[in-house]
């Protein structure tokens, strides 16, 4: 009676053994498959991130590098160029991102309506700017808005203005040109995100709402907007990160490009990334201070992303967070 049982036991044990051996072998393969990518990332991503932080604690003077703790971070507080670049970046961020996302949302809502004709054509036309390189569109807009550019000639021809406007010589209009150009490049791109989000919303919900007597505008605010919240959050975060890193556009929009003394009239186009570039590669190289400004961007991205997650959280997530807090408080009491 016992023999078959022993045999069965032996069999299962050997299958388990084989499984363990295989698993170990497979684990080894897992490491082999990710090895090249991990080595490259370690060298060109993990190490630079950490080393950059170390650099931000050092200062180079006359070829001698000293460890200065947080002196660079203190220096930032009184550096007028840093504050100019921070202000410029935030002005661009606070105007460009909301206007662009609002336009993208409206266009997506219109193009999601199946009764609109030529939807495919409009969608393609509006997405087309996203294929241009950042340099190409920046330079097209620079030519368009230059003193002798197409816009001035056209406005003069239709007698709207008698003299050309110096768009790129005035700090405010120069910034406006940059914002307009960025809206042109990215609106269609974000619109496609919203369209793909809207396709996941069932038609039935809208029908039920319209039977209940909801107008189109009301169903947009009560149905589309709440269900699209994750997508809106995602595009907001991506655009914020992109704008905080803005480099190609201001660099090429300014008169004289890379070699210019100021970026835009009275540095009105100086962004954080351009400032880091100037600190590291244009002025007398000061890598330590450049890395400090770079880490300010890292911190800003972290803070803004966190805020956006909080604001953009769904009601369920907010509820869950509240419960967690309560639990923690009760635990502490107990």
């Amino acid at each position: 009676m016992l023999a078959p049982l022993i045999f069965f036991d032996y069999l299962t044990q050997s299958i388990i053994d084989w499984g363990i051996i295989m698993e170990r072998k497979l684990k080894k393969y897992g490491l082999i498959f990710i090895a090249v990518a991990m080595i490259l990332l370690a060298l060109f991503m993990f190490y630079p991130v950490l080393y950059s932080f170390y650099l931000s604690l050092t200062s180079t003077k006359l070829g001698k590098t000293d460890f200065v703790w947080f002196a660079n971070y203190k220096r930032i507080l009184t550096d007028p160029l840093f504050w100019t670049s921070l202000k410029n970046t935030f002005v661009i961020l606070l105007i460009q991102v909301p206007v662009m996302l609002f336009l993208a949302l409206i266009l997506a809502t219109i193009l999601n309506d199946k009764s609109i004709k030529f939807r495919g054509f409009f969608r393609t036309a509006l997405f087309l700017p996203a294929v241009t390189s950042l340099i190409a569109y920046t330079i097209l807009f620079k030519m368009l808005f230059s003193y002798t550019g197409l816009l001035n000639t056209t406005l003069m021809r239709i007698n709207l203005i008698s003299e050309p406007i110096e768009w790129m010589s005035n700090p405010i209009t120069a910034k406006a040109v940059l914002i307009i150009a960025m809206i042109w490049r990215w609106t269609g791109y974000n619109m496609v995100f919203y369209l793909s989000g809207m396709q996941n919303i069932s038609e039935d919900i809208y029908e039920a709402a319209s039977i209940d007597g909801a107008s189109k505008i009301k169903s947009f605010f009560m149905i589309t907007l709440p269900l699209l919240k994750p997508m809106i959050l995602f595009t907001t975060i991506m655009s914020t990160i992109g704008t905080l890193q803005l480099f190609d556009e201001p660099m090429n929009l300014s008169q004289g490009g890379v070699t210019a003394a100021t970026i835009g009239p009275s540095n009105s186009l100086l962004t954080l990334s351009v400032y880091i570039y100037n600190l590291s590669f244009k002025y007398v190289p000061n890598f330590g201070y450049g890395a400090t400004v770079a880490y300010v961007i890292v911190i800003l991205i972290g803070i803004l992303t966190l805020i956006q997650f909080r604001v953009g959280a769904t009601d369920d997530e907010k509820e869950a967070r509240k419960l967690k807090k309560q639990n923690r408080r009760e635990k502490r009491r107990a």
Binding site: F44, P48, Q245, S273, S280
Partner: peptide, 21 residues
């Protein structure tokens, strides 16, 4: 997890060490 954590690191923060490497 470590890899995904670096997704939001801006290029500007890598630029100087990368240049030195």
């Amino acid at each position: 997890a470590l890899t995904m954590l670096t997704m939001m690191i801006p290029f500007a923060a890598l630029m100087i060490p990368l240049f030195q490497i």
